[in-house]
Amino acid sequence: MQPRTSIALECAYFDADRCRSCTLLPTPYERQLADKQRAVEAALPAMAWDAPHASAVGGFRNKAKMAVAGTVDAPTIGILAADGSGIDLQACPLHEAPIVAAMPVLERLVREARLTPYDVPSRRGELKLLIVTASPDGELAVRLVLRSTESLSRIRKHLGVLDALPIASLSANLQPEHKAVLEGEEELLLAGDGVLVMRVNGIGLRLRPRSFFQTNTAVAAGLYRQATAWIDEAAPASVLDLYCGVGGFALHAARSGRRVEGVEVTAEAIDAARESAAELGADASFSVGDATAVDLEGARAPELVVVNPPRRGIGALAARLDASAVDRVLYSSCNPDSLARDLAAMPGFRPVRGRVFDMFPHTGHAEVLVELERR
């Protein structure tokens, strides 16, 4: 059942002018959704549209990326002001309840392990970010983004602080550079097995620390259900999932018994997808590779391709798909502008239908699923 859309979200941070990240918060949610639908329709070619998939207005975000500032004895966990000072947002109403409950405990770890918050103006300090992800089962994956290994022994000494939290994975990411880069290349596991299971529509998708997953689990579940329904209607013998991540679209499609392959550049995500496929007993194979360079011709050319690219879109892959033997494409996009550009580069396909999935309430961002068929 779709969430009710008439309930306004109360946010003390917005009311106090401490955080304005949710630019559309004063706008009634029904109007937000209608405006988003109109904007997406205006940006894309004419097609049939299903009713947009609404979100809960609060408590929907499964991931918190919190900048740490202030001092060891009085840290702030939230965002940074324009001058680099910290704004504490530990009780942000967008986050799922387990994340909000974890924040005071994580603050205690910062204080007791003497983790000096990173100060942007002076370029000094150790702890840059706390990244917390919650699973549908209420488990947590916690990442501490540090500048060095200097504090690791103190963190390990004080891990008992976190005993009250249902932590499946605790890791430290090393990001020594003085620039706006979210994370570094090195990840050190400190506790747990390094895997957070996101159980979506009965499929256990495995997230490791550097894996991507949609930040709105309930709406992501709806997106996967919709894509699977359209795939089942088309009834292709084979499906290729490009930019497959941990295998969300591919593993859902494989449950109907068809042959499915997935390609993703991140080896960690591919390992996770393979483990999930083995657990399901699915006829799905996954490989590490460049999605834009996959062979789309020959006897094993897929009948249907799913693409779920980054915000920049699929680029040169659009022309390759257009010239291929592929009959049908499902395109999941978080950027209607790049989606429009890519559709224009595929004149051999006709947009059949689309649907907006509101992953990001109170902002202008939209996730869109579009079905294309060969003309």
Rank of each mutant, 00 (worst) to 15 (best):
V307W: 01
L188E: 01
L152I: 13
V329F: 03
V307R: 00
A12I: 12
K179V: 13
T217A: 10
P3V: 06
K65L: 15
V356I: 13
N335K: 04
P209A: 08
R111C: 14
H158P: 04
L182S: 14
S6F: 12
T217P: 01
E186K: 14
V239Y: 00
D271F: 09
I231N: 00
A284H: 03
A234L: 15
E185T: 13
A74K: 12
E268P: 04
A254E: 02
A221F: 09
A39D: 08
D15T: 14
P104Q: 09
D358V: 11
M66G: 03
P236L: 03
V263D: 00
P136E: 02
D73H: 11
E303Y: 09
R108Q: 13
A340C: 07
P45L: 08
A172C: 06
E371N: 03
L251Y: 08
E139N: 14
A316N: 10
D322K: 04
R143P: 02
F249W: 06
A323S: 11
V329N: 00
H53F: 12
V181Y: 09
A278K: 11
A318P: 00
V195G: 03
P117Y: 03
V197T: 15
C11M: 06
A301C: 12
D163W: 03
R124H: 11
D50Y: 11
G247H: 02
D15M: 11
A284I: 09
R31T: 14
A229V: 13
I87D: 01
A74Q: 12
V368I: 15
P52V: 06
A272C: 11
G202L: 02
E112Q: 14
P351D: 05
A81F: 03
G78E: 00
N173K: 04
L165P: 03
G348S: 08
S238E: 09
A134V: 11
E126L: 04
I99P: 00
L223T: 10
V263A: 06
A172E: 02
R259D: 10
N173C: 11
E139C: 13
P52G: 06
R31W: 05
D295M: 08
G354P: 06
T116R: 12
L170K: 02
A12S: 14
V145D: 00
S148Q: 06
I79L: 15
A8E: 13
A64Q: 03
V246W: 00
R154F: 09
D295G: 10
A293F: 04
D271T: 15
L242Y: 02
T23W: 07
G222L: 05
E297Q: 14
A172L: 05
S148Y: 07
Y224A: 06
Q226C: 10
E10P: 09
V294W: 00
A164D: 12
P3Q: 06
R300I: 08
C244D: 02
D342G: 10
E297M: 15
T292F: 11
T23G: 10
D88Y: 03
I203R: 00
Q226E: 12
R274F: 04
L165D: 04
V219Q: 00
L80Y: 12
S171F: 05
G192K: 03
G160F: 06
P347N: 05
S338D: 02
A46F: 09
R328T: 15
V329C: 04
S151C: 10
